[in-house]
């Protein structure tokens, strides 16, 4: 039963991926991609990784899908001629087939070989984590790995996110280039739902953050939920990005700065970079995580709201009329 479930789930995952790859209709590919994210969350569950399932449920099935739908809407707000031209490209004799085929088959064979002839692991990481978990300040092993044993990764990750959002801001069109969209239509039912759902979302985000110290959850999942809540609000017609512009700027860098400050200030006490003093590890980790949650949520939200508005191609059309 158990294995049958996994086999069917794996095949379904492959099927949705094939659906994404082979759809002529771009929107169909995107909906298939949302289904793919949901199935991937189930796969993480079956791989005994509820943390990943939590992140995937918020990101794969939620945020990425919204981003993709928004991008397709951006294209179709102008014309889908490009999509039709794309089909022409598909059958163009100019496009060589050898590159895709070789890369596909080569990667497949190489990776199968890597799995077949894998070296035996010389150290057992799970055992090392289990032996040291008592000193880490938290009970949940994944949080311990993320914020204590391998906190370099997390620090650099938040730095990468920060760089991404700075690049996104730099790519923003100049003010006069942007055509202000009319405020979205007031929809009382959606408005009501969002107003009631927002406290629940913030509460769940905080719960997931807090739960991270002893069970699946933590800063990343909490941040993803916070981001999804903000995106939800923005979509429902609340101008979150305009209300929160100053808070946004402050919050973006907060997680990185706090993390770096803690990491450096322990060096004053003569300890190595990115370690925690005894006895305070738990509190410091929770503090850093709370700031990280805020930052990740705000960063992911601004990566959504920094998108050029749909009028981006209106200028394009206007130019066409001029000719």
């Amino acid at each position: 039963m158990n294995l049958a479930f996994d086999i069917v789930l794996g095949l379904a995952l492959l099927l949705t991926a094939l659906g994404v790859f082979s759809s002529k209709d771009l929107f169909r590919a995107v909906v298939m991609f949302i289904a793919f994210g949901l199935l991937l969350a189930l796969v993480w569950v079956r791989l005994d990784a509820p943390d990943l399932a939590l992140a995937e449920a918020a990101i794969g099935a939620g945020l990425t899908g919204v981003l993709m739908i928004d991008a397709v809407a951006h294209l179709s707000a102008n014309t889908l001629q490009n999509d039709q031209r794309d089909d022409q490209y598909d059958h163009s004799p100019k496009r060589p087939l050898w590159l895709p085929v070789i890369s596909c088959v080569g990667l497949f064979v190489l990776l199968l070989g890597a799995i077949r002839f894998r070296p035996e692991a010389s150290v057992s990481l799970p055992d090392m984590v289990r032996d040291n978990i008592a000193e880490s300040g938290v009970e949940h092993p994944i949080t311990a790995v993320l914020l204590n044993f391998r906190s370099y990764d997390t620090l650099l990750e938040i730095a990468v996110l920060l760089v991404a959002v700075v690049v996104a801001m730099a790519l923003k069109p100049a003010a006069e280039d942007r055509v202000h969209q009319p405020p979205p239509a007031h929809d009382p039912i959606l408005h009501g739902l969002t107003a009631r759902l927002l406290p629940a979302m913030l509460l769940v985000g905080m719960y997931v953050l807090w739960a991270g110290s002893y069970m699946p959850g933590g800063a990343f999942q909490g941040g993803a939920i916070l981001a999804a809540a903000l995106v939800f609000l923005q979509l429902a017609g609340f101008a979150v990005d305009r209300y929160a512009a100053s808070l946004l700027r402050l919050g973006l860098a907060l997680g990185f700065l706090v993390f770096l400050t803690v990491a450096v200030s322990v060096m004053i006490g003569g300890r190595p970079f990115l370690t925690y003093p005894e006895g305070f590890a738990g509190q410091l980790i929770f503090f850093i995580e709370a700031m990280l949650t805020l930052s990740i949520g705000l960063i992911l939200f601004s990566l959504f709201s920094q998108n050029p508005p749909h009028s981006g191609a209106v200028g394009h059309q206007g130019a066409n009329h001029d000719q």
């Binding site: 949901l38 939620g62 739908i69 939800f232 429902a236």
Partner: peptide, 17 residues
């Protein structure tokens, strides 16, 4: 989490597409 975010793609679709 999935139940909370179940409608977000739908809202994006209705509002943007």
């Amino acid at each position: 989490v999935l139940a909370l975010l179940a409608t977000i793609a739908m809202v994006a679709f209705v509002k943007r597409m």
